[in-house]
Amino acid sequence: MSGSAEGRSEDRRRGGERSRALLDALLEGRPEPGLAARAAEGLELPERGRYAVVVLRAGGGGPAVGALEAAGLRFVRRRRTDRECVVVALGDRDPPALVALLARCGAGPGGVGPVADGLAGLGTARRLAELALLTRPPGTTEIVRLEERLPTALVVSQPELSARLVADVLGPLLALPPAERALLVRTLETWLECGGSAGRAAGRLYCHRNTVLNRLRRLERLTARSLSRPRELTETVLALDAFRLTAPHP
């Protein structure tokens, strides 16, 4: 009887190892013939269907599991040293609803890739979910979707070009004393958040509208970019994202 129990335990262990190996192969996007079909059987998930891959910082999978189970969603997870991947069978649910569910349970920070059409697309979805995670502002715990961060994702996916963009656009600004630089950066960020309204930005910054405009004009002189020209504004915004997410901070 003891041997039979040990045998069942060994079978479960081997089955778990096979399942993890199949999931790893899917998440790594290995081009193995028949992989999706084998994984569907081993993981007990449909080969075809709508899937989301969520990449969470280590420890986020615990709250996520409880929330997904409570919502009746089918999922599998893979833990790593510094992060966890959760593959969710969406059914007819949409990604924003999944993000809201995970945010309510405090599973973040995390990133969610675009919807994968079947198990064969999990490798790309995982890679893009990790990229989405990199676009998360430092110090925040939010869960972000790639589709909402595409320009920033372009920036963080090319560190060398991002560093060049920061140097070319923000170089003179970054040479200012830290407090002075922080004031101008915060003013620009607030102005952008307010849709380009100096009056609304002034309300948030507790200063006069003309103070906001003067700071923005000074920033334009330092960067040699006009905030009223769309192409130059785009360069400035992308450089700002690169500075916040990839450039070293003092």
Rank of each mutant, 00 (worst) to 15 (best):
G113C: 08
C85P: 00
L90A: 08
F75T: 04
V87C: 07
P95K: 08
G60P: 13
G108F: 02
L101M: 04
R79S: 13
P96M: 09
E84F: 10
L98F: 08
A70M: 05
A107G: 09
R93M: 13
V99Q: 13
R78S: 14
E84D: 10
R74V: 09
G60R: 11
V65M: 04
R78I: 01
V65K: 13
L68R: 06
V88H: 11
A103D: 15
P109E: 03
D82M: 01
V112Y: 09
A107F: 01
R57H: 10
V86H: 04
P114E: 14
D94G: 00
G113V: 04
L102V: 03
G108A: 08
A107S: 15
R57D: 11
D94K: 10
V87W: 09
V86P: 04
G62A: 15
P109Q: 06
R78E: 10
P114K: 05
A58G: 08
A103I: 00
V65C: 07
G106H: 01
R93W: 15
G72S: 13
R80E: 15
L101C: 05
L68P: 07
E69L: 12
D82Y: 07
A107D: 01
E84R: 03
L90F: 11
V112L: 14
G91R: 14
V76S: 11
L102N: 04
L68G: 06
D94I: 02
G61L: 07
L90Y: 11
V112N: 06
R74Q: 14
L90C: 12
A71N: 11
G59D: 11
R57N: 03
D82W: 06
R74G: 12
C85K: 08
R79F: 06
G113D: 09
V88A: 10
C105H: 11
P109D: 01
G66W: 12
E69I: 02
A89K: 10
T81A: 15
V112P: 07
P95A: 04
R80A: 10
T81L: 14
P114I: 01
E69G: 10
V76E: 14
D92T: 14
G72P: 13
L68V: 06
G91A: 12
R78K: 15
G91E: 12
A100P: 06
V112Q: 05
P114F: 11
R78M: 12
A100I: 01
C105K: 13
R80K: 09
A103C: 00
T81K: 11
A89Q: 15
D82F: 10
V87R: 05
P96A: 07
R80Y: 15
R79M: 05
G111T: 03
A64T: 06
A100C: 00
R78T: 03
